[in-house]
């Protein structure tokens, strides 16, 4: 017993250090694995409010550019108005696609905090569950997809962006329909990669990559980027495809959150598939 106390006295500094280090690392790795704790993120009220002030100052820096982008998008939407595809109510825009009988609702939001140079980058939006945002919804901008909602509080939400390692969004080559999974190698915010394209399929440089819409998070056909180049993966019958993202995530501001009204129906019918046939995820 005496020895034990002597041991603790001798190493008390190290033990205290190890204790605090344990807390820090547990929070970090826990968060990466299970995004539960809202209090430690920018979705919490205090830091969300601070970031809002920060954004109030910095949002005007690229005002001209953002206005042009919004104007461009408005013209696109106006074109659709003539065909009466779009009904507009107070908060959101509804698109009725009569061919597929699918309904998506778009919730506008503004990115108030973002990073692009970390290994896993998360963006903070200024809307939360008060405006109907839920965990797992897709987020896109006029130029391309942005990510998936990771964590929601009352007025803020955190997006797991496409600049994270295991974002795994269903994408496909637009012209040929070859499916793949979107990944990011952490090096460059302009370049992403696509895994699990089998190397007997023909892939062409500069062909457009769009979302596949398989998991019901994104509608089919949202722009992701263009193929930059592709090479063989050693020892596997797969292409290692790298793509240029169509959106520049360093100056992202206005985004839309996608609400899939038929998601429950899709989930329900897909749950009737027996368990032994599994999606080849990650390969």
């Amino acid at each position: 017993m005496r020895n034990l106390i002597a041991f603790f006295r001798r190493f008390r500094i190290f033990l205290f250090f190890a204790f605090l280090q344990g807390i820090a690392l547990t929070t970090y790795f826990n968060y990466l694995a299970y995004p539960r704790s809202q209090y430690l993120t920018t979705a919490s009220a205090v830091s969300g409010q601070m970031l809002e002030y920060h954004n109030d100052i910095t949002k005007h820096f690229q005002l001209a550019f953002n206005n042009r982008k919004l104007q461009y998008e408005n013209t696109l939407l106006r074109k659709r108005l003539a065909n009466s595809f779009v009904r507009i109510d107070q908060h959101s825009v509804l698109i009725n696609d009569t061919l597929n009988d699918q309904q998506y609702e778009y919730i506008p939001a503004v990115v108030i905090n973002s990073t692009v140079n970390k290994r896993n980058n998360y963006f903070t939006l200024n809307s939360g569950w008060r405006r109907g945002i839920k965990r797992g919804m897709g987020v896109f901008s006029p130029n391309g997809i942005v990510g998936i909602i990771h964590n929601v509080s009352e007025h803020y939400s955190v997006v797991k962006s496409v600049l994270t390692e295991d974002i795994n969004i269903d994408v496909m080559v637009e012209s040929t329909g070859i499916p793949g999974l979107l990944k990011w190698n952490g090096m460059n915010a302009k370049i992403g990669s696509i895994a699990s394209i089998s190397n007997d399929l023909p892939v062409k440089k500069w062909s457009k990559i769009v979302t596949r819409g398989g998991s019901g998070i994104f509608p089919r056909g949202l722009t992701v980027g263009k193929i930059k180049d592709f090479k063989m993966v050693e020892g596997k019958p797969l292409w290692d495809v790298s793509i240029y993202y169509s959106e520049d995530y360093r100056k992202l501001q206005n985004v839309y959150v996608i609400k899939n009204l038929l998601l429950n129906e899709q989930k329900k019918i897909e749950s009737s598939i027996p368990d032994d046939i599994e999606e080849p995820e990650g390969l």
Binding site: Y28, N30, L40, T41, T42, V46, S47, L51
Partner: peptide
């Protein structure tokens, strides 16, 4: 808290 790094 302000940069979404959770303990890093």
């Amino acid at each position: 808290l302000f940069s979404n790094t959770y303990g890093l």
